[in-house]
């Protein structure tokens, strides 16, 4: 089927299978491989992208269903250089192998957009869909909390 996807503020006309998942279209058709696939079943969050500002698993979203919405990937988030959140990830060593990191950054970006000064409990509830096998969670938590502390009141 033909569809138009708006990804990182750019329009893309695509011809895809109707069951194609957004994650595969982003990676294989658009070359946006910062979005990772860890499990393919919504269990790990490595594939998280923003759809209309909300973080979702792009492995469980049909690309067709994303038409008419605005998709932002890690490449879009990083377009103008590292965000303060990404810098906090580096400073707090919130990553090890880094495979889940794009998804973590996407989910944390969405979390901070609606809750600029989250508590520890908010961070844990908000990031629970993003697994990190290396166990970088303490750093991730510190990085997000650090952003909350510097956010304007």
């Amino acid at each position: 089927m033909r569809l138009t996807l708006l990804v990182n503020d750019e329009r893309h006309e695509l011809e895809i299978a109707h069951t194609a998942r957004l994650a595969d279209v982003l990676r294989d058709e658009l070359g946006l491989v910062g979005t990772k696939i860890g499990c393919g079943e919504g269990a790990c969050g490595a594939c998280a992208v923003l759809v209309d500002g909300r973080a979702v698993n792009s492995c469980l979203l049909l690309a067709a269903a994303a038409e008419g919405h605005s998709v932002t990937t890690i490449e879009g988030i990083s377009r103008d250089g590292l965000t303060p959140l990404q810098q906090a990830f580096i400073a707090e060593d919130a990553l090890q192998c880094g495979y889940c990191t794009a998804g973590q950054v996407v989910a944390a970006t969405a979390l901070l957009a609606v809750n600029p000064s989250p508590t520890v409990e908010d961070v844990r509830a908000g990031m629970v869909g993003n697994l990190c096998r290396c166990g970088a969670y303490p750093g991730i938590e510190r990085a997000i909390l650090r952003l909350g502390q510097v956010a304007p009141a």
Binding site: T19, R21, E41, N57, C59, L60, L61, L62, A64, A65
Partner: peptide
Amino acid sequence: MGGGTDLAGLIDRGIGQVATIVD
């Protein structure tokens, strides 16, 4: 299909026949 989170998983594992997805 509402959000498709369950349906996409079922399609991926080949459970059930899906001729047409009505979003």
